[in-house]
Write a protein that binds this DNA or RNA. Structure first.
Lengths: 210, 210
DNA sequence: TCATGTGAAAGCCTTCACAGCG
DNA sequence: CGCTGTGAAGGCTTTCACATGA
């Protein structure tokens, strides 16, 4: 694999894949960087740079859709499916369980955790809910290396050390608190309140940037 | 207002505010940039740069919590409350309605929209649901300039022109499709699938970056 | 003395611009 | 001829490092 791929490029691969996936169900066999770019909201240069790392040669008709798709899948989807667990089965947690169930076969939601006794033992959107106490044991049993955090902000603070001990490799954190984890664990923060406040700020500002 | 504030700085103001808000309910009257930084997951230099734009003088004991809070609020929260509408009352839409209801008094969720007749007319998490047909009329009536999009990907494509006509100033887009809007409208994309796929990629990669 | 405020340097990401190839 | 692939330039963001002030 190419060693120096930036986080942003990886994110855009995911965008491109969505488009290519849709294209692959049509008659269109080739796509131009300019097309891919316009439909993804990036520039053509940037799309070409991102595709460069995939080492798929384009031609005068552009890139072959199937070839790109294969190359991006090879990067984003490892050979073995990855198990994912979700911690915090509130409104947002349930919405995400439903959203992700069966969406990407290589990412399987194998367990949910909560502290609410009413939720424990239930199967929610196809995913069994366990007590948070059993986190380490069940993550180990299911070989889950990725967790989604959808807890109230205060609750994540104590979770860091447990995630480290459980051998977690990546976290998708929806809680509005900073997780202090070693750099070997990838943390992807999704801060919805911040995003809305940014939107509100720029809505109220005359001079728009970007 | 300082003219050249970057989007990233605005986002971090929102982070800092959350922390300062919590601090303001404690005895602690001053905070050091290094403290603020550590607890927000940024460097001390960066925190100081971000605070620079607020023109709040710090001293040897650091910054006064209340002064910072006032300055950030002045930036992020305009004098008048801003009305927000949400389009697409599925699982994620409902979770966000519940999440945002009453959280920030200066951001008021005034209307939800859907095409499902079963949802129209109901009040969901304190927010009335209207038919999507009436979008323009109701956005105008409620003076909503910010919309949250939580629809299936395909459905947003046709929405662009309607949002422009309705005079929308900012969009928080959870749909995995590119919105083609003029640069005068701020678009904040929150792509949950992309975030999870990034997390999965870096979970599977040996060399972690960042 | 110790923390801020900030020029200057470094690093990262995007865009330009064009050689080269099908 | 038009599009890709990519060095080089440009722009943005972060970090360094230190003068300044309480």
């Amino acid at each position: 694999m190419h060693p120096d791929v930036s986080q942003k490029t990886v994110g855009r691969w995911s965008l491109y894949r969505r488009l290519l996936d849709a294209l692959s169900r049509t008659e269109q066999r080739y796509i131009l960087s300019s097309d891919l770019a316009r439909r993804s909201g990036v520039t053509a240069s940037q799309a070409r740079r991102d595709l460069m790392h995939l080492e798929v040669a384009g031609g005068a008709r552009g890139y072959e859709v199937q070839a790109l798709l294969r190359a991006i899948n090879a990067q984003l989807a490892p050979a073995e499916p990855q198990a994912v667990a979700l911690i915090g089965v509130g409104n947002l947690g349930r919405a995400l369980l439903s959203y992700f169930q069966g969406r990407r076969p290589t990412l399987q939601l194998v367990a949910a955790f909560d502290i609410d006794p009413h939720k424990i033992g239930r199967v929610i959107h196809g995913c069994r809910c366990y007590p948070l106490d059993e986190l380490e044991a069940i993550l180990e049993r299911e070989a889950a290396r990725i967790v989604i955090l959808t807890l109230p902000g205060e609750a994540v603070a104590t979770l860091g050390p447990r995630l480290i001990k459980a051998g977690i490799r990546a976290v998708l954190n929806f809680a509005p608190s900073h997780l202090d984890l070693p750099p070997s664990i990838h943390v992807e923060d999704v801060d919805i309140t911040m995003s809305l406040e940014k939107a509100a700020f720029f809505a109220a500002t005359q001079e728009q940037r970007s």
